[in-house]
């Protein structure tokens, strides 16, 4: 609880400092939102050629897109700045974090908060809402709860992968791009129905790096595309995936910091 309060305090400090550069901030919000909008354009352009993709209509894919992109944007908002960890390691500023009496991961996550990414969250939620309404899906309590749960677990999955990827740069400084391929690539991957991918890739993103559990299974149920034979538990695949990844992320981060403290910069 105390950690959560500290997080909010530190993050609001960061947010305040970003709002000082007003024009740069406005520009940044617009830019970040536009990036998200262009991803949507890509989906719509593909669908201008076909009516259904792997059995999914354009609006159904937009629901999937909305959920996946919201989860990604939230994770980006919370931990996206971990991309800068290699720079901090080079400059030695990570030592300052280790000198403070708090968890180094907490302090690193709280060390920034890019308010501009709020624009992307809003845009993705808007896509979700519009597609949801036009499909006439209604607001059954259970459905809304499932969407909320999916957004939470999806965000946690993306964030944990980000942390794991950032932690590996303690060992190999120059490989942040590899992490980006899992996070930004994960956004691309989860925005389309899993069925379009090769079987081996599907297995990989469900059982190894559970990006496939971000949005696909619950949304498939919500838009009414779940095969009748599927167990309802599959919709909740994101829960064990998120929980497992959090454990792995904590473990990898601790191991990485231990290595760093063993070898120094």
């Amino acid at each position: 609880m105390d950690d959560a309060r500290l997080y909010l305090r530190l993050v609001s400090g960061r947010a305040r400092s970003q709002l000082q550069y007003r024009w740069g901030f406005v520009f940044d919000v617009l830019g970040a939102t536009l990036v998200g909008a262009l991803d949507l354009v890509a989906v719509l352009v593909l669908f201008s050629n076909i009516a259904v993709m792997d059995g999914w209509s354009a609006l159904e894919v937009c629901v999937l897109f909305g959920v996946a992109q919201t989860a990604f944007a939230l994770a980006d908002l919370l931990v996206g700045h971990l991309d800068r960890l290699p720079v901090e390691l080079r400059a030695g500023t990570f030592d300052t974090v280790l000198l403070q009496p708090r968890s180094s991961l907490l302090l690193m996550i709280a060390s920034d908060f890019s308010v501009r990414r709020v624009g992307q969250v809003a845009l993705s939620l808007a896509v979700l809402a519009v597609a949801w309404t036009r499909l006439g899906l209604g607001v059954a309590l259970l459905d809304v709860a499932l969407v909320t749960l999916t957004l939470v677990t999806g965000t946690v999955i993306f964030a944990a992968i980000w942390v794991i990827g950032a932690a590996t740069t303690f060992w190999t400084i120059d490989t942040m791009e590899l992490t980006n391929s899992l996070t930004y690539g994960g956004r691309q991957l989860t925005s389309y129905p899993l069925g379009i991918y090769h079987a081996w890739l599907r297995r990989f993103v469900v059982f190894v790096v559970p990006l496939g559990c971000v949005a696909y299974f619950p949304v498939r149920h919500l838009v009414g595309l779940e095969p009748a034979s599927t167990s309802p538990l599959v919709r909740l695949a994101g829960v064990p995936a998120a929980a497992g990844l959090v454990v792995v992320a904590g473990f990898v981060w601790r191991a990485a910091v231990r290595t760093y403290r063993g070898t120094g910069s």
Binding site: G13, R16, S17, D95
Partner: peptide, 13 residues
């Protein structure tokens, strides 16, 4: 700890 070359203060605040 004080490192003369670095700061633990929040730059923009």
């Amino acid at each position: 700890v004080v490192f003369g070359q670095r700061t633990q203060l929040w730059w923009d605040l």
